[in-house]
């Protein structure tokens, strides 16, 4: 395996910033974010695509960072929970999640927030059914989901111009 480089050096676009990063090439985006960029807001629950905890946005769409190769992220636009707030101002989704009990332990929360952001970016008035479908790839063990649905609905209302 002598041909395989020990590290690769690439540039990602993370939360709007051009971010050079060097990492072992076997790493997935999840590992690069958490271990090489210290963005530990993105969580992991299985690393096999079975829980949704590691969801981030790549070029605006939610993907599981545990199943995206780091080497395939060069130049791509990556959004994580760390980039969701506008300075000190929480994103309406964050505020609604905090206010309405959508985050209990908070572990699945970053993945759901990012998934919900992608939804609202596309569909500012999602129905309850659309919301349920949109986050059905994010397991939560605390809430029973209902307060999450309500928080996404509330955020949609608060985001109305």
């Amino acid at each position: 395996m002598a041909a395989v480089p020990q590290r690769v050096h690439l540039k990602f676009l993370v939360n709007g910033e051009e971010t050079p990063v060097s990492f072992a090439p076997y790493k997935t985006l999840l590992e690069v974010l958490r271990e090489d960029l210290n963005l530990t807001g993105t969580k992991h629950g299985c690393e096999l695509g079975e829980c949704g905890a590691c969801a981030v946005l790549i070029d605006g769409e939610p993907h599981l960072s545990c199943l995206v190769l780091g080497v395939e992220c060069e130049g791509r636009r990556i959004e994580t929970v760390e980039g969701l707030a506008d300075g000190a101002e929480l994103h309406p989704l964050q505020a609604a999640f905090a206010d309405l009990g959508a985050a209990q332990c908070g572990y699945c929360t970053p993945g759901i927030l990012m998934t919900a952001k992608a939804l609202l970016d596309k569909d500012p008035n999602p129905s309850r059914e659309t919301i349920k479908e949109a986050i059905s790839g994010n397991l939560c063990r605390c809430t029973g989901y209902q307060q999450i649905f309500e928080a996404i609905e509330e955020a949609a209302v608060r985001m109305k111009p």
């Binding site: 958490r34 271990e35 210290n38 963005l39 530990t40 807001g41 993105t42 969580k43 992991h44 994580t80 929970v81 760390e82 969701l84 707030a85 929480l90 989704l93 964050q94 505020a95 999640f97 905090a98 206010d99 009990g101 985050a103 332990c105 908070g106 572990y107 929360t109 970053p110 927030l113």
Partner: peptide, 19 residues
């Protein structure tokens, strides 16, 4: 909740987040 903001910003530090 008083810890609500930390939980929605990714700042809640779980054990595996410690480096």
């Amino acid at each position: 909740r008083v810890d609500g903001r930390a939980k929605v910003t990714g700042l809640t530090r779980f054990a595996d987040d410690i480096v």
